[in-house]
Amino acid sequence: MIVTPGWYLALAAVIFVIGASGMLLRRNALVMFMSVELMLNAANLSFVAAGRALGVLDGQAAVFFVMVVAAAEVVVGLAIIVAVFRRRATASVDELSGLKG
């Protein structure tokens, strides 16, 4: 039995769905961020697997860029979480509804 790229893609889909469920169901901003990381990693995995299937390095280059974006996002996002926490003493996104219509 050979591990085809399709297996990796399926695994990536599963991890992505788990990450998305964390995004939709958890209220803790930190956990939501971690879920985002999960989804990004799932995407990265599918990039690499697809790149292997197609025989190109583009997928791995794309992973590089995704990582950069993820790093920037984590840095800014965590800074925002800390700033909010200093002011509100909470990490629950449901309590941050100042912009609701």
Binding site: V3, P5, Y8, L11, N44, L45, V48, A49, G51, R52, Q60, V63, F64, M67
Partner: peptide, 14 residues
């Protein structure tokens, strides 16, 4: 998984 897909550098960076 990166390593098993031949993405050695990306795995290291990961």
């Amino acid at each position: 998984f990166y390593v098993s897909n031949g993405a050695h550098l990306v795995a290291a960076v990961q």
